[in-house]
Write a protein that binds this DNA or RNA. Structure first.
Lengths: 185, 185
DNA sequence: ATGTGGATAGAACGATCGGTATACGCCGCC
DNA sequence: GGCGGCGTATACCGATCGTTCTATCCACAT
Protein backbone atom coordinates (compact mmCIF):
# COMPACT_ATOMS: atom_id res chain seq x y z
CA UNK A 1 0.00 0.00 0.00
CA UNK A 2 1.41 3.32 -1.04
CA UNK A 3 1.62 6.08 1.53
CA UNK A 4 -0.46 9.15 0.98
CA UNK A 5 1.54 12.20 -0.03
CA UNK A 6 1.88 15.01 2.50
CA UNK A 7 -0.40 18.05 2.61
CA UNK A 8 1.98 20.17 0.58
CA UNK A 9 2.05 17.73 -2.32
CA UNK A 10 -1.69 17.13 -2.11
CA UNK A 11 -2.26 20.88 -2.32
CA UNK A 12 -0.03 21.14 -5.37
CA UNK A 13 -1.77 18.24 -7.08
CA UNK A 14 -5.25 19.56 -6.40
CA UNK A 15 -4.32 23.11 -7.37
CA UNK A 16 -2.64 21.91 -10.57
CA UNK A 17 -5.75 20.06 -11.62
CA UNK A 18 -8.33 22.63 -10.58
CA UNK A 19 -6.53 25.73 -11.82
CA UNK A 20 -6.34 24.04 -15.20
CA UNK A 21 -9.90 22.74 -15.46
CA UNK A 22 -11.57 25.66 -13.69
CA UNK A 23 -9.03 28.40 -14.30
CA UNK A 24 -6.81 30.20 -11.82
CA UNK A 25 -9.87 31.97 -10.48
CA UNK A 26 -10.95 28.78 -8.78
CA UNK A 27 -11.75 29.26 -5.10
CA UNK A 28 -9.43 28.35 -2.28
CA UNK A 29 -12.21 26.29 -0.71
CA UNK A 30 -12.47 24.04 -3.76
CA UNK A 31 -8.73 23.39 -3.72
CA UNK A 32 -8.76 22.63 0.00
CA UNK A 33 -11.66 20.26 -0.39
CA UNK A 34 -10.10 18.31 -3.24
CA UNK A 35 -6.73 18.19 -1.50
CA UNK A 36 -8.43 17.13 1.75
CA UNK A 37 -6.19 19.50 3.61
CA UNK A 38 -6.73 21.93 6.43
CA UNK A 39 -7.06 25.57 5.53
CA UNK A 40 -4.10 26.53 7.60
CA UNK A 41 -1.70 24.22 5.78
CA UNK A 42 -2.10 26.22 2.60
CA UNK A 43 -0.95 29.42 4.25
CA UNK A 44 1.73 27.56 6.18
CA UNK A 45 3.33 26.12 3.05
CA UNK A 46 2.68 28.72 0.38
CA UNK A 47 1.87 31.94 2.19
CA UNK A 48 -1.39 32.30 0.32
CA UNK A 49 -3.20 31.51 -2.89
CA UNK A 50 -0.82 33.55 -5.01
CA UNK A 51 2.15 31.60 -3.75
CA UNK A 52 0.40 28.30 -4.40
CA UNK A 53 -0.50 29.28 -7.95
CA UNK A 54 3.05 30.39 -8.65
CA UNK A 55 4.46 27.18 -7.23
CA UNK A 56 2.11 25.11 -9.36
CA UNK A 57 3.55 26.78 -12.45
CA UNK A 58 7.13 26.53 -11.23
CA UNK A 59 6.89 22.84 -10.36
CA UNK A 60 4.77 21.88 -13.33
CA UNK A 61 7.66 20.36 -15.22
CA UNK A 62 6.36 21.57 -18.54
CA UNK A 63 9.87 21.88 -19.89
CA UNK A 64 10.67 18.33 -18.82
CA UNK A 65 7.74 17.06 -20.85
CA UNK A 66 9.02 18.83 -23.94
CA UNK A 67 12.40 17.29 -23.26
CA UNK A 68 10.94 13.80 -22.96
CA UNK A 69 8.98 14.08 -26.17
CA UNK A 70 12.06 15.23 -28.04
CA UNK A 71 14.30 12.60 -26.53
CA UNK A 72 11.82 9.89 -27.50
CA UNK A 73 12.05 11.11 -31.09
CA UNK A 74 15.74 10.26 -31.39
CA UNK A 75 18.75 12.37 -32.09
CA UNK A 76 18.00 14.16 -35.36
CA UNK A 77 17.08 17.79 -34.55
CA UNK A 78 14.53 17.79 -37.34
CA UNK A 79 12.73 14.74 -35.94
CA UNK A 80 12.93 16.16 -32.44
CA UNK A 81 11.30 19.45 -33.40
CA UNK A 82 8.56 17.88 -35.49
CA UNK A 83 7.82 15.39 -32.72
CA UNK A 84 6.73 18.32 -30.57
CA UNK A 85 3.97 19.15 -33.00
CA UNK A 86 2.90 15.53 -33.30
CA UNK A 87 2.56 15.48 -29.53
CA UNK A 88 0.66 18.78 -29.59
CA UNK A 89 -1.81 17.20 -31.99
CA UNK A 90 -2.46 14.44 -29.47
CA UNK A 91 -2.78 16.84 -26.55
CA UNK A 92 -5.08 19.31 -28.27
CA UNK A 93 -7.35 16.49 -29.45
CA UNK A 94 -8.17 15.39 -25.92
CA UNK A 95 -11.57 16.50 -24.60
CA UNK A 96 -10.05 17.75 -21.34
CA UNK A 97 -7.70 20.07 -23.22
CA UNK A 98 -8.23 23.61 -22.07
CA UNK A 99 -5.30 25.53 -23.53
CA UNK A 100 -1.85 26.39 -22.28
CA UNK A 101 -1.70 26.67 -18.50
CA UNK A 102 0.90 29.40 -18.65
CA UNK A 103 -0.85 31.54 -21.25
CA UNK A 104 -4.12 31.21 -19.38
CA UNK A 105 -2.49 32.32 -16.14
CA UNK A 106 -0.78 35.23 -17.84
CA UNK A 107 -4.08 36.45 -19.27
CA UNK A 108 -6.20 35.84 -16.21
CA UNK A 109 -3.90 37.47 -13.66
CA UNK A 110 -4.17 41.20 -14.20
CA UNK A 111 -1.94 42.31 -11.36
CA UNK A 112 1.58 42.76 -12.81
CA UNK A 113 3.04 42.05 -9.37
CA UNK A 114 1.59 38.53 -9.19
CA UNK A 115 4.43 36.03 -8.71
CA UNK A 116 3.00 33.78 -11.42
CA UNK A 117 4.11 36.16 -14.16
CA UNK A 118 7.76 35.47 -13.43
CA UNK A 119 7.16 31.72 -13.70
CA UNK A 120 5.40 32.13 -17.02
CA UNK A 121 8.22 34.22 -18.37
CA UNK A 122 10.92 31.83 -17.21
CA UNK A 123 9.04 28.88 -18.70
CA UNK A 124 8.72 30.48 -22.11
CA UNK A 125 12.32 31.58 -22.10
CA UNK A 126 13.38 28.09 -21.15
CA UNK A 127 11.37 26.74 -24.05
CA UNK A 128 13.01 29.31 -26.31
CA UNK A 129 16.45 28.10 -25.27
CA UNK A 130 15.37 24.51 -25.85
CA UNK A 131 14.25 25.23 -29.40
CA UNK A 132 17.18 27.48 -30.22
CA UNK A 133 19.56 24.70 -29.17
CA UNK A 134 17.91 22.26 -31.57
CA UNK A 135 18.03 24.77 -34.42
CA UNK A 136 21.68 25.44 -33.70
CA UNK A 137 22.41 21.73 -33.93
CA UNK A 138 20.41 21.65 -37.15
CA UNK A 139 22.59 24.35 -38.66
CA UNK A 140 19.97 27.07 -38.68
CA UNK A 141 21.48 30.44 -39.65
CA UNK A 142 19.53 32.37 -36.99
CA UNK A 143 18.56 30.02 -34.17
CA UNK A 144 17.11 32.75 -31.97
CA UNK A 145 14.77 34.08 -34.63
CA UNK A 146 13.89 30.55 -35.67
CA UNK A 147 13.07 29.63 -32.09
CA UNK A 148 10.82 32.70 -31.89
CA UNK A 149 8.96 31.33 -34.90
CA UNK A 150 8.60 27.90 -33.29
CA UNK A 151 7.29 29.48 -30.08
CA UNK A 152 4.72 31.46 -32.03
CA UNK A 153 3.63 28.22 -33.69
CA UNK A 154 3.39 26.38 -30.36
CA UNK A 155 1.47 29.16 -28.64
CA UNK A 156 -0.71 29.48 -31.72
CA UNK A 157 -1.61 25.81 -31.66
CA UNK A 158 -2.42 25.84 -27.96
CA UNK A 159 -4.49 29.02 -28.23
CA UNK A 160 -6.34 28.17 -31.40
CA UNK A 161 -7.17 24.60 -30.41
CA UNK A 162 -9.26 25.85 -27.50
CA UNK A 163 -11.84 27.29 -29.87
CA UNK A 164 -11.33 25.21 -33.02
CA UNK A 165 -9.78 21.85 -32.10
CA UNK A 166 -11.38 20.20 -35.13
CA UNK A 167 -9.12 22.30 -37.37
CA UNK A 168 -6.19 20.23 -36.05
CA UNK A 169 -3.99 23.33 -35.70
CA UNK A 170 -1.01 21.22 -34.66
CA UNK A 171 -0.89 19.64 -38.09
CA UNK A 172 -1.15 23.04 -39.74
CA UNK A 173 1.70 24.27 -37.56
CA UNK A 174 3.80 21.20 -38.22
CA UNK A 175 4.00 22.05 -41.90
CA UNK A 176 5.15 25.57 -41.00
CA UNK A 177 7.71 24.16 -38.59
CA UNK A 178 9.17 22.31 -41.55
CA UNK A 179 9.53 25.68 -43.24
CA UNK A 180 11.46 26.95 -40.23
CA UNK A 181 13.75 23.93 -40.39
CA UNK A 182 14.20 24.37 -44.14
CA UNK A 183 16.05 27.61 -43.50
CA UNK A 184 19.05 25.57 -42.34
CA UNK A 185 22.20 25.20 -44.46
CA UNK B 1 -21.58 69.91 -28.31
CA UNK B 2 -22.03 66.22 -28.85
CA UNK B 3 -24.81 64.42 -27.04
CA UNK B 4 -23.86 61.79 -24.55
CA UNK B 5 -24.56 58.23 -25.69
CA UNK B 6 -27.40 56.34 -23.99
CA UNK B 7 -26.91 54.00 -21.06
CA UNK B 8 -26.73 50.93 -23.26
CA UNK B 9 -23.86 52.29 -25.32
CA UNK B 10 -22.07 53.64 -22.26
CA UNK B 11 -22.29 50.20 -20.66
CA UNK B 12 -20.85 48.57 -23.76
CA UNK B 13 -18.00 51.07 -23.96
CA UNK B 14 -17.08 50.73 -20.31
CA UNK B 15 -17.35 46.96 -20.38
CA UNK B 16 -15.27 46.74 -23.55
CA UNK B 17 -12.49 48.74 -21.97
CA UNK B 18 -12.55 47.17 -18.52
CA UNK B 19 -12.96 43.55 -19.57
CA UNK B 20 -9.87 44.01 -21.72
CA UNK B 21 -7.64 45.83 -19.26
CA UNK B 22 -8.85 43.99 -16.14
CA UNK B 23 -10.09 40.75 -17.67
CA UNK B 24 -13.65 39.45 -17.90
CA UNK B 25 -13.58 38.83 -14.17
CA UNK B 26 -13.88 42.55 -13.57
CA UNK B 27 -16.67 43.42 -11.15
CA UNK B 28 -20.04 44.71 -12.19
CA UNK B 29 -19.60 47.64 -9.83
CA UNK B 30 -16.52 48.84 -11.66
CA UNK B 31 -18.32 48.71 -15.00
CA UNK B 32 -21.33 50.58 -13.63
CA UNK B 33 -19.12 53.24 -12.10
CA UNK B 34 -17.13 53.85 -15.27
CA UNK B 35 -20.28 53.85 -17.42
CA UNK B 36 -22.01 56.16 -14.93
CA UNK B 37 -25.15 54.12 -15.30
CA UNK B 38 -27.73 52.85 -12.88
CA UNK B 39 -27.42 49.29 -11.76
CA UNK B 40 -30.81 48.39 -13.06
CA UNK B 41 -30.05 49.49 -16.60
CA UNK B 42 -27.50 46.72 -16.99
CA UNK B 43 -30.05 44.03 -16.23
CA UNK B 44 -32.70 45.82 -18.28
CA UNK B 45 -30.57 45.88 -21.44
CA UNK B 46 -28.44 42.77 -21.18
CA UNK B 47 -30.14 40.51 -18.66
CA UNK B 48 -27.00 40.27 -16.58
CA UNK B 49 -23.24 40.35 -16.69
CA UNK B 50 -23.00 37.32 -18.95
CA UNK B 51 -25.20 38.95 -21.56
CA UNK B 52 -23.19 42.15 -21.40
CA UNK B 53 -19.91 40.31 -21.86
CA UNK B 54 -21.28 38.36 -24.81
CA UNK B 55 -22.62 41.52 -26.42
CA UNK B 56 -19.25 43.22 -26.00
CA UNK B 57 -17.65 40.43 -28.02
CA UNK B 58 -20.43 40.36 -30.60
CA UNK B 59 -20.37 44.11 -31.21
CA UNK B 60 -16.62 44.46 -31.00
CA UNK B 61 -16.17 44.71 -34.75
CA UNK B 62 -12.92 42.79 -34.67
CA UNK B 63 -13.58 41.42 -38.13
CA UNK B 64 -14.21 44.91 -39.48
CA UNK B 65 -10.80 46.00 -38.28
CA UNK B 66 -9.14 43.14 -40.13
CA UNK B 67 -11.11 44.14 -43.19
CA UNK B 68 -9.99 47.75 -42.93
CA UNK B 69 -6.35 46.82 -42.56
CA UNK B 70 -6.52 44.58 -45.59
CA UNK B 71 -8.40 47.10 -47.70
CA UNK B 72 -5.85 49.76 -46.87
CA UNK B 73 -3.15 47.44 -48.22
CA UNK B 74 -4.57 47.44 -51.74
CA UNK B 75 -5.88 44.67 -53.92
CA UNK B 76 -3.08 42.10 -54.10
CA UNK B 77 -4.00 39.18 -51.81
CA UNK B 78 -0.37 38.77 -50.85
CA UNK B 79 -0.07 42.37 -49.70
CA UNK B 80 -3.40 42.14 -47.92
CA UNK B 81 -2.41 39.08 -45.89
CA UNK B 82 1.02 40.39 -44.98
CA UNK B 83 -0.48 43.74 -43.96
CA UNK B 84 -2.31 41.91 -41.19
CA UNK B 85 0.98 40.88 -39.62
CA UNK B 86 2.45 44.35 -40.00
CA UNK B 87 -0.55 45.66 -38.13
CA UNK B 88 -0.19 42.94 -35.49
CA UNK B 89 3.37 44.12 -34.93
CA UNK B 90 2.09 47.60 -34.19
CA UNK B 91 -0.68 46.37 -31.90
CA UNK B 92 1.46 43.97 -29.91
CA UNK B 93 4.11 46.65 -29.39
CA UNK B 94 1.75 48.95 -27.54
CA UNK B 95 2.12 49.00 -23.76
CA UNK B 96 -1.62 48.58 -23.24
CA UNK B 97 -1.65 45.38 -25.28
CA UNK B 98 -3.02 42.55 -23.20
CA UNK B 99 -3.62 39.75 -25.69
CA UNK B 100 -6.56 38.70 -27.80
CA UNK B 101 -9.87 39.61 -26.21
CA UNK B 102 -11.57 36.53 -27.61
CA UNK B 103 -8.90 34.06 -26.57
CA UNK B 104 -8.78 35.58 -23.10
CA UNK B 105 -12.54 35.27 -22.73
CA UNK B 106 -12.51 31.71 -23.98
CA UNK B 107 -9.87 30.73 -21.43
CA UNK B 108 -11.29 32.67 -18.51
CA UNK B 109 -14.91 31.54 -18.84
CA UNK B 110 -15.01 27.95 -17.64
CA UNK B 111 -18.73 27.40 -17.96
CA UNK B 112 -19.34 25.85 -21.40
CA UNK B 113 -22.85 27.32 -21.39
CA UNK B 114 -21.62 30.92 -21.21
CA UNK B 115 -22.98 32.87 -24.19
CA UNK B 116 -19.56 34.36 -24.87
CA UNK B 117 -18.25 31.07 -26.24
CA UNK B 118 -20.54 31.25 -29.22
CA UNK B 119 -19.33 34.76 -30.03
CA UNK B 120 -15.70 33.67 -29.84
CA UNK B 121 -16.36 30.76 -32.14
CA UNK B 122 -18.24 32.83 -34.70
CA UNK B 123 -15.49 35.46 -34.69
CA UNK B 124 -12.74 32.95 -35.36
CA UNK B 125 -14.75 31.25 -38.05
CA UNK B 126 -15.43 34.59 -39.67
CA UNK B 127 -11.72 35.29 -39.63
CA UNK B 128 -11.11 31.90 -41.16
CA UNK B 129 -13.47 32.70 -44.02
CA UNK B 130 -11.77 36.05 -44.50
CA UNK B 131 -8.34 34.47 -44.84
CA UNK B 132 -9.53 31.56 -46.95
CA UNK B 133 -11.07 34.03 -49.41
CA UNK B 134 -7.76 35.83 -49.81
CA UNK B 135 -5.88 32.57 -50.32
CA UNK B 136 -8.43 31.48 -52.90
CA UNK B 137 -7.90 34.70 -54.84
CA UNK B 138 -4.17 34.12 -54.52
CA UNK B 139 -4.48 30.73 -56.14
CA UNK B 140 -3.70 28.70 -53.06
CA UNK B 141 -4.25 24.97 -53.69
CA UNK B 142 -5.89 24.39 -50.29
CA UNK B 143 -7.37 27.66 -49.00
CA UNK B 144 -9.02 26.09 -45.97
CA UNK B 145 -5.85 24.46 -44.70
CA UNK B 146 -3.87 27.59 -45.53
CA UNK B 147 -6.32 29.72 -43.59
CA UNK B 148 -5.93 27.38 -40.62
CA UNK B 149 -2.20 28.03 -40.78
CA UNK B 150 -2.73 31.79 -40.87
CA UNK B 151 -5.09 31.61 -37.89
CA UNK B 152 -2.53 29.64 -35.92
CA UNK B 153 0.01 32.32 -36.74
CA UNK B 154 -2.33 35.14 -35.71
CA UNK B 155 -3.35 33.47 -32.46
CA UNK B 156 0.27 32.61 -31.83
CA UNK B 157 1.37 36.20 -32.22
CA UNK B 158 -1.37 37.50 -29.93
CA UNK B 159 -0.71 34.86 -27.30
CA UNK B 160 3.07 34.99 -27.35
CA UNK B 161 3.33 38.77 -27.36
CA UNK B 162 1.67 38.93 -23.95
CA UNK B 163 4.69 37.33 -22.32
CA UNK B 164 7.49 38.16 -24.76
CA UNK B 165 6.57 41.27 -26.76
CA UNK B 166 10.24 42.14 -27.22
CA UNK B 167 10.62 39.05 -29.42
CA UNK B 168 8.42 40.83 -32.00
CA UNK B 169 6.44 37.65 -32.71
CA UNK B 170 4.48 39.39 -35.46
CA UNK B 171 7.62 39.73 -37.54
CA UNK B 172 8.50 36.10 -36.95
CA UNK B 173 5.00 35.11 -38.02
CA UNK B 174 5.10 37.36 -41.07
CA UNK B 175 7.94 35.35 -42.53
CA UNK B 176 5.95 32.16 -42.00
CA UNK B 177 2.90 33.76 -43.57
CA UNK B 178 5.03 34.25 -46.66
CA UNK B 179 5.65 30.51 -46.61
CA UNK B 180 1.89 29.94 -46.55
CA UNK B 181 1.45 32.26 -49.51
CA UNK B 182 4.32 30.57 -51.35
CA UNK B 183 2.23 27.41 -51.60
CA UNK B 184 0.17 29.09 -54.31
CA UNK B 185 0.58 28.14 -57.95
C1' DA C 1 -53.39 67.02 -17.36
C1' DT C 2 -52.13 62.30 -17.29
C1' DG C 3 -50.06 58.61 -17.53
C1' DT C 4 -46.09 55.72 -18.96
C1' DG C 5 -41.79 53.88 -19.71
C1' DG C 6 -36.81 54.59 -19.20
C1' DA C 7 -33.48 56.04 -16.22
C1' DT C 8 -31.53 57.03 -11.64
C1' DA C 9 -30.11 56.17 -6.74
C1' DG C 10 -29.46 53.22 -3.19
C1' DA C 11 -30.46 49.56 0.07
C1' DA C 12 -30.30 44.86 0.65
C1' DC C 13 -29.98 39.94 -0.67
C1' DG C 14 -27.39 35.43 -0.07
C1' DA C 15 -23.23 33.61 -1.55
C1' DT C 16 -18.50 33.42 -1.94
C1' DC C 17 -13.97 35.47 -1.78
C1' DG C 18 -8.98 35.20 0.49
C1' DG C 19 -7.18 35.27 4.94
C1' DT C 20 -6.84 34.95 10.17
C1' DA C 21 -7.70 33.02 14.76
C1' DT C 22 -8.67 29.46 18.17
C1' DA C 23 -8.60 24.95 19.88
C1' DC C 24 -7.37 20.15 19.70
C1' DG C 25 -4.91 15.77 18.36
C1' DC C 26 -0.91 13.30 17.01
C1' DC C 27 3.90 12.06 16.82
C1' DG C 28 8.88 12.22 17.19
C1' DC C 29 12.70 13.84 19.90
C1' DC C 30 15.33 15.46 23.59
C1' DG D 1 7.59 12.56 30.52
C1' DG D 2 7.00 16.49 28.64
C1' DC D 3 7.55 19.58 24.97
C1' DG D 4 7.50 21.64 20.30
C1' DG D 5 5.98 21.34 15.67
C1' DC D 6 2.83 19.93 12.28
C1' DG D 7 -1.75 18.85 10.74
C1' DT D 8 -6.82 19.12 11.40
C1' DA D 9 -11.20 21.20 12.18
C1' DT D 10 -14.01 24.98 12.56
C1' DA D 11 -15.44 29.51 13.45
C1' DC D 12 -14.96 34.02 11.97
C1' DC D 13 -13.30 38.31 9.65
C1' DG D 14 -14.21 42.12 6.24
C1' DA D 15 -14.71 42.56 1.49
C1' DT D 16 -16.69 41.68 -2.80
C1' DC D 17 -19.47 38.98 -5.90
C1' DG D 18 -23.88 39.12 -9.17
C1' DT D 19 -28.58 40.02 -8.54
C1' DT D 20 -33.13 41.84 -6.95
C1' DC D 21 -35.80 45.24 -4.90
C1' DT D 22 -38.10 49.75 -3.79
C1' DA D 23 -38.54 54.44 -4.61
C1' DT D 24 -38.03 58.61 -7.17
C1' DC D 25 -37.39 61.39 -11.16
C1' DC D 26 -38.07 63.12 -15.80
C1' DA D 27 -39.12 63.30 -20.85
C1' DC D 28 -42.56 62.55 -23.92
C1' DA D 29 -47.02 60.98 -25.89
C1' DT D 30 -51.77 60.86 -25.08
Amino acid sequence: MTTRPGPRQRLLDAARELTYSQGVQVGVDAILKQADVARRSLYQHFGGKDGLVAEVLRSDGGLDRYHQVMDAAGDDPRDRVLAVFDELDVITSQPAFRGCRYTAAELALTDPAHPAHGEVRSFKEGLHRLMAAELTRHGHPAPDAGADQLLVLIDGVLAHAVTRPAARPALAARALAEAVLAASR
